[in-house]
Write a protein that binds this DNA or RNA. Sequence first.
RNA 1: GGAGAGUUGGCAGAGUGGUCGAUUGCGGCGGUCUUGAAAACCGUUGUACCGAGAGGUACCGGGGGUUCGAAUCCCUCACUCUCCGCCA
Length: 423
Amino acid sequence: MLEIARIRSEKTAIIEGLKKRNIDASLTIDSILELDMKWRNSKTDLERYAAELNQLAKSIGILMKEGKQEEANTTKEQTAALKAKENELKIAVDDFEKQITQLLYTLPNVPNELVKAGANETENETVVTSGEIPTFNFSPLAHWDLAKKFDLIDFELGVKVTGAGFPFYKGKGAKLQRALITFFLDEAEKSGYEEFIPPLVVNEASGIGTGQLPDKEGQMYHCTIDDFYLIPTAEVPLTNIYRDTILPSEDFSIKLTGYTPCFRREAGSYGKDVRGLNRLHQFDKVEIVRIEHPSNTAKALEEMLEHVKNLLEKLELPYRILRLCGGDTGFASAMTYDFEVYSGAQEKWLEVSSCSRFDTFQSNRLKLRFKGEDKKTQLCHTLNGSALALPRIVAAILENHQSEDGIKIPKALQKYTGFDIIN
RNA sequence: GGAGAGUUGGCAGAGUGGUCGAUUGCGGCGGUCUUGAAAACCGUUGUACCGAGAGGUACCGGGGGUUCGAAUCCCUCACUCUCCGCCA
């Protein structure tokens, strides 16, 4: 959520920035500012009445104590009219506030200056391309065929037991999952991230804190009896650790990581894009989260990119990094880099990681602040990224590293899998 | 699942209708003393919002109510703890 104070002071810059998302926010912002003006005026009035009433109540107390019953009663009568006024204003103030919040919820984050204008994914900029696109002297199989051939993943069994998008991993397939998770966590630890194993369900306040609620509840599984939500990403519990927090100094850099299964309803399109591991309702992911001083955000994002690059290089996968254009950048993000790996058999790029800086957009809702030198509280910046999401990495490993002898396990992963080939 | 007790400032813990945004202790910060530190002593120490400022308003788990006035009374919801039961 954008800060109201920022809208007051940087109105034109915000409108210009949002144009990069193909959004004309000028009407919304004008309404917000108009409501804000009304809200402040009503609030000032309200507080004046409240002060007067407090004063009267106090004096009644004193009169009673002094035994001046009659004077006290006369004073009581004065309060009735003021109270009516106060009530009226209270309702108005609440109403303005609600309207403002409603409108603020509709505004996405303002893109960073590096983000280019653009309507959709076709206008993203490729900033890095690395690694060899694999070539085969045989006809390569897609990962769903490989998974069947080597008995690694059973999609049909998942359908039987749960439903589409909930596969079983078996044997070496399961072992590969476990190896990747441990590998990713070890690498995160090497980069200075502290590991957490968080709850997999969260309450409503946490969903609101990271922005899944109130608008996107359809994307999460909801346990209605207890009013819990299954997490769509570890970002939710990890970031919410710091909800309603004021860090005591401005000298901080918080780096968290966690492995969790992720649950997403995403009732979306069907067909080739969602085949096999390409899109699942439950998948595994190691997430990295950072909470930073605003002056360190740019550097932190760079470090996250380096970290993910390193993972992909160790897995010997060809990848490219895209800086998303305005129209493709997520609602809460100020800037997002997507990592895509090339899938040798499907012959397309698969998104495996998304690293974003949210600046104060999340921390404003989370009430995550720090105390500056001047003792003033300021909002922290939050960032997060996948490092990495498993299913498409598994798909890419299976497809890119297939050979006539079987699937070769990248060297860096072998000590985790305990085998160097699947055949 | 049954029974009971709670929820107050960074923490501990007072406060049962009026000058209580809240006694006190610990912790934190500043100072005196000291070569330095400890101890002792003195002072200070919540958040948000409105206001140009003076100042004001709100917040004692959340929401609602009674009252001129609520941390204190009533209703309701949530959470925590203890005991019993069940259980990995």
